[in-house]
Design a protein around this nucleic acid. Structure first.
Lengths: 203, 203, 203, 203
DNA sequence: AAGTAAACGAGACGGTACGTCGTGTCTTCCG
DNA sequence: CGGAAGACACGACGTACCGTCTCGTTTACTT
């Protein structure tokens, strides 16, 4: 899985020529450090640049604004969704749900994701990257596991997998970020058993 | 009843825009206007004050920051949840779900709510007001309708009403705000019928 | 004579309202200090502002650029031309010439005037202020003395006073600033005696 | 052609290893073009390099800063002082004065010379080149003509030639650059006839 | 003729200053 | 005397150049 290879470029193509790749990595690492130290709102590009020992222009050359930089910085740090075939769909699904809960419950995500979503409201490019680079990969991997469960008969054939996943993601986002409730394992279990018992169906 | 007696009785109430409203009202109205014109990110307290014909200090006297001002301004404008007893729980529940969809699908909410949530991440006071003044009133009124359905037997006695509502709110928030998907009526219907058929249960 | 009164305003009219007059004075004083410490080229508005304990915006509110600020700062510090009637035109004229030599020979002027002239090349407003606030007042006062000499018969009636003064100023400027030659008293004496003996005549 | 042999070593002065001599010329030509288009203040080395189709380093390899580059670029463009023996000193001197007026009155000089003088205030090396490469050659040639006039008896034997020239240069510089007055031919004539009638004498 | 070292174009790099903007406080002055 | 108007200190913004540097790519001289 070549995730690691793809750390540096801003997007896949239009990336600017970069002489000192180390600078890029240093900036991303510093960004994570600064974000966790002072939070998104108080982080500044100037501050990150200075702490990374880099000119501001070097940051702006690669990222148009704080949100894009943040997105790149956190992207690789986020836990992924396990898709391993355990030959046991309930266990696999529980693992997926736990991974989602770990994601949406992570302090880093709770602190940063709302800001990214908020900035995305006025920046369609950012909104697109947020969806295609953060949300959809995880949604796809989660869906893989659920589709396998459908194939195995652990879920009905007309299970609305995407709605199920959006319900989960939404609830976790809502509870964790909006209500500031912790996502405990009981909640995760409830969601999984409810889903196995009566998942949403395609119309 | 406003504590403000009508100091300028001549103008009565046919007075067109905002000229002789109390400063507070004028500020809130201007805030809404500015927000819808330039968006949350580009709105500034100074700009709002100027447009409201008010000193900045007058704004700061009543609201500590833009988020609080925004919260007050939008609060009254948001559609509420209908709790009327129609003697028909499915119809009542559908009305609730539609109201929620209207809420989370509203352009204003999609543009502003993420910013408020984001700011709330670093301002517990704001987070608290967000929950108690925006979310919980609507959750309570929605729960009222669902509890009535339980009482009537339209939903099982051990229905987990709050989880059901959080699933709905979360899905709507996630789809509308994060995925930028529209909340169409088919989706609302699916949610309602799925809930009526197999709601989440208390553990 | 009310020179002192007129220290603060940028020009005579369009001056912005200023709350804290002390800030203005502090900025001008700091400007002089910084100029003499690091020179015109290395002085920065940000640095002056910081050293004056003032925001950059406060400086920009009153002066559009470094040159204007410098002009205001040095204006009052420059030696003036003595016009006192000594009942002895040769002595009066010598005093004028010495004052001019002191002016153009002053290290401060040698360091700053060229920069102002240079900036004035691309800023007609600055060029105008340079002429009307620095050059012409001194030229006028010098001319007063020479005209008095004409009246007294110490100079011929058709003496071209302005050309005489421009020859002096030019020579001093050229020798002191361009050639970096010192303006010694012998030179001044020569100029004065040559002028008394054979001044330039009006055509 | 022997130019090619002279790659790096025994060049004119301090050895500018230049492979492509054309580059040097192209840079100087571009410099003049840029200077006349945007002025000294807004000209940048990066911009000149780019417009000359040359790397910035290539410029820096030959000139330490904008002023030195400008000096080299304008040096060859400036009109020279005619020293031809016309067997008529008044006519020769008038030609000299006109050449000086053409020099100091040229828009290019008015725009650039103050900047060079200003930069020279903080760069002794530049100041030295300014004097030895721009001023003194012209002063020397002018002095040649005046000394010839002395030899011929058109000027007194104790004429202070250098002071006379500095008076002329200074007046022209002052009027043209500082006062923005045009140097018309009447002025030149006045200067010349006044000099012939009563030149400054050596002490 | 191939090999090698330099000078080259291009432009990324770490910096510094720019001039603007928004913040939240504080002062002036008007109605 | 309250409030609009906005000056104020502060600090981040994003841009422009600076002068240095590191890349390949010519180019001109070895061998």
């Amino acid at each position: 899985m070549g995730e690691k290879r793809n750390l540096h470029p801003l997007s896949d193509e239009q990336s600017a020529p970069v002489r000192d790749l180390a600078a890029r990595e240093r900036i991303l690492a510093t960004t994570l450090r600064v974000l966790s130290r002072v939070g998104y709102a108080k982080a500044t590009i100037g501050g990150i640049a200075q702490e990374a020992g880099v000119g501001k222009a070097t940051v702006y050359r690669s990222w148009p604004h704080k949100a894009a930089l943040t997105l790149d910085a956190v992207r690789a740090q986020l836990p992924d969704i396990p898709v391993d075939d355990l030959d046991d769909s309930p266990r696999e699904i529980l693992a997926v749900a736990r991974a989602l809960a770990g994601l949406y419950g992570a302090p880093q995500v709770r602190a940063i994701l709302p800001a990214l979503i908020s900035d995305a409201a006025t920046d369609p490019e950012l909104a697109h990257r947020l969806r295609t680079e953060l949300v959809e990969p995880r949604r796809d991997r989660s869906a893989t596991v659920l589709h396998r469960a459908v194939t195995r008969g652990a879920l009905p054939a007309d299970t609305d997998v995407l709605t199920l996943l959006d319900l989960w993601a939404g609830l976790m986002l809502f509870r964790s970020v909006v209500l500031c409730d912790p996502l405990d394992d009981r909640t995760v279990h409830s969601l999984v058993s409810a889903a196995l018992a009566a998942p949403p169906r395609l119309p």
